[in-house]
């Protein structure tokens, strides 16, 4: 065996390996901290943390009372990040979220407009029941989510980093709601389905929440900068070309006309996922591989994150909705077809 050593390269490798190892440990620690408060919902916690490190936004869908707000506050406490909550209502205006210019008089009596920042200027924003706001208000978040800035009166204001929008919506109540536009849906990194807790989880929830003492969490990360650095480290995980090909084929399979959709799925799909969806899949796959201790992504990583990455990006036909076909079923069939 060749034993030529590259001192410089070797050091870098060691540094990278150490950084990734630290990331895994921190991630595991954060997850443990959050799970001290949030009973069950391990997958939700895992994906939410993953989205934070990757700079993505999360759309949580679930009935009220499942701990979505608690998860957000706990996450903020654990990561030592600033958290703000906005309850979306039909009369909510974009300025209520983004902020507005107000006329203020200074000490000298001079009057001028000053920008009053809205709740979007935070590190973690909880948009509760986001689908109750009008599309106009909902679209106010488009720039913030994608560009991580807010432009008001021709002046752009950058949002703090890390910035994450965690929106919730109730799948049951449809009256007085405004479905999110596809453009905004596509900006969510993950769409997570919050399941109802099991009996054991319910018992544990009662034990933890009906007493006088609540579980306290300790910050595991000193600053948001560390989150960003780890996020950048994860992005360096390489993907072999066959893996990327697989991801591309998977994404194209969601398109009824453009891609080789799995047999019989075309009638259920009105529109497939955007390239942003593939980006989300690849990034999430990298994070998954790193968290699994691997330095290369496999097709299994892609397939494992396909559902949370694509389910909200698939537009189903009327027939599919009428027959109760869910996006997850379609994704499963596509994955099976590509296997």
């Amino acid at each position: 065996m060749t034993t030529i050593r590259d001192p410089r390269g070797t050091d870098v490798e060691r540094a990278v390996e150490a950084g990734l190892s630290e990331f895994r440990n921190t991630f595991t620690q954060l997850q443990t901290q959050i799970q001290r408060v949030i009973v069950g919902q391990d997958t939700i916690v895992h994906h939410v943390l993953m989205a934070i490190f990757l700079g993505g936004h999360v759309l949580l869908e679930g009935v009220p009372g499942l701990g979505k707000t608690l998860l957000m506050t706990t996450l903020g406490d654990t990561l030592a990040l600033q958290v703000k909550r906005v309850q979306f209502t039909p009369d909510l205006m974009p300025a209520d979220i983004l902020g507005t210019r107000v006329l203020q008089q200074d000490a000298g009596g001079a009057v001028k407009f000053e920008f009053e920042r809205g709740p979007v200027f935070t590190q973690i924003m909880l948009a509760d029941e986001i689908n109750r706001a009008t599309p106009k208000t909902q679209s106010a978040l488009l720039e913030a989510m994608q560009e991580r800035r807010v432009t008001i009166a021709g002046v752009s204001h950058r949002l703090p980093e890390p910035f994450m929008v965690m929106a919730t919506q109730n799948p049951l109540e449809s009256e007085g709601t405004y479905p999110l536009p596809e453009a905004q849906l596509d900006r969510f990194f993950f769409k997570l389905l919050v399941r109802f807790p099991t009996q054991l989880e319910l018992v544990e929830i009662m034990k933890r929440t009906t007493g006088n003492s609540g579980a306290a969490v300790q910050p595991s990360i000193n600053s948001g900068a560390q989150i960003i650095s780890w996020g950048r480290l994860v992005r360096q995980v390489p993907l072999a070309t066959p893996i990327l090909d697989y991801g591309a084929r998977l994404l194209l399979a969601t398109h009824p006309k453009e891609g080789p959709a799995a047999q019989g799925l075309s009638k259920w799909l009105r529109c497939g996922a955007s390239p942003r969806g593939l980006q989300a899949m690849v990034l999430a796959a990298k994070a998954r591989a790193v968290l699994a201790g691997r330095f290369a992504v496999s097709r299994e990583d892609i397939a494992a994150v396909a559902k949370p990455c694509l389910r909200h990006r698939l537009l189903l036909t009327f027939e599919a909705e009428a027959e109760g076909v869910r996006p997850d079923q379609i994704i499963d069939q596509i994955i099976e077809a590509l296997r």
């Binding site: 590259d6 893996i243 290369a296 496999s298």
Partner: peptide, 18 residues
Amino acid sequence: DLLTSAVEFLGAVEPFRR
């Protein structure tokens, strides 16, 4: 996939690939 990636990364100098 592991071996496929490794074969593709043969000769690479990037630390992650190595």
